[in-house]
């Protein structure tokens, strides 16, 4: 393939991965119209600097190491697959993993804000899951808070010389769980209970989202370790140039 053709192909891969994320109808994400306008706008505004940082971070990674594009496409595709899988949980409800923790460990947390918002946008537009008015809040929980926590846990584990697989498990599992805790807080702030106020509401939503998510977070952690082991075996040259390798 010529260089221009290769570039076209890489672009088409990226485009393909964007379309992967349409759905995940009944799971997490704050439903369209369920946040008051003030909250919706505030959460959206909070996301903007992270998205800018994400675009800069992705551009830097790709310009330094073109081969990383394949790994980035794979990390994005991983998030799309996982957010399509609605898995039954012990509470009798279903929810889906986020899949953004693995990319955060590989590329740093900012990059995942861009990938995450694309996933959420497609789910909101095509599948009536989440929504445009709640896009900011959902982006903050799934594409910013979760990945940043994952990255923090990953760095901390590596500093404490924790085994690499265990670190990946803890980072992706806790990042997934944290996403839903943030969702609960966002809903609690928007809908304080008549008795007990914001805290009582947060507890109610935690009971719905976070408890349902515990087994799914463990599934996401285990799957991410499996993918990471495979990448370590076959893509060590790419990984060695990412943020991942310097921990």
């Amino acid at each position: 393939m010529k260089k221009s053709e290769k570039r076209l192909f890489a672009l088409s891969l990226a485009a393909a991965m964007l379309f992967v994320m349409p759905s995940s109808a009944s799971a997490m994400h704050i439903m369209e119209g369920y946040l008051p306008m003030g909250h919706a706008i505030a959460w959206g505004a909070v996301c903007l600097p992270f998205l800018a940082a994400g675009l800069i971070s992705i551009r830097k990674t790709i310009s330094q190491n073109r081969k990383a594009l394949l790994i980035l496409a794979m990390a994005g595709a991983y998030a799309f697959v996982l957010s399509a899988l609605k898995i039954p949980s012990v509470t009798g409800s279903s929810s889906h993993p986020t899949g953004t923790g693995l990319g955060a460990v590989l590329f740093g947390p900012a990059a995942m804000s861009v990938i995450g918002i694309i996933v959420l946008l497609f789910q909101a537009l095509l599948l009536a899951h989440g929504g445009l008015t709640t896009l900011g809040a959902n982006t903050f929980s799934m594409a910013i808070a979760g990945p940043f926590l994952s990255y923090g846990v990953w760095r901390l584990c590596r500093k404490c010389k924790v085994n690499k697989s265990v670190s990946v498990f803890l980072a992706t599992c806790l990042g997934d769980l944290f996403t839903y805790c943030v969702t609960s807080v966002q809903l609690g702030l928007a809908h304080p209970a008549a008795e007990g106020g914001v805290m009582a509401s947060i507890t109610t939503f935690m009971g719905i989202f976070a408890v349902t998510q515990i087994p799914l977070a463990i599934v996401e952690g285990l799957l991410s370790v499996a993918v990471m082991l495979a990448l370590e075996s076959y893509a060590s040259s790419e990984l060695s140039e990412l943020a991942y390798a310097h921990q």
Partner: peptide
């Protein structure tokens, strides 16, 4: 095994019975 977001909608209806969602999804399957 319905979605956890459906359960959240019910919880909001209990906590905040007067709340009306002010936007609807553009496309719904």
């Amino acid at each position: 095994f319905g979605g956890a977001d459906g359960a959240a909608e019910e919880a909001i209806a209990q906590i905040d019975p007067d709340y009306q969602p002010w936007a609807e999804s553009i496309l719904e399957p």
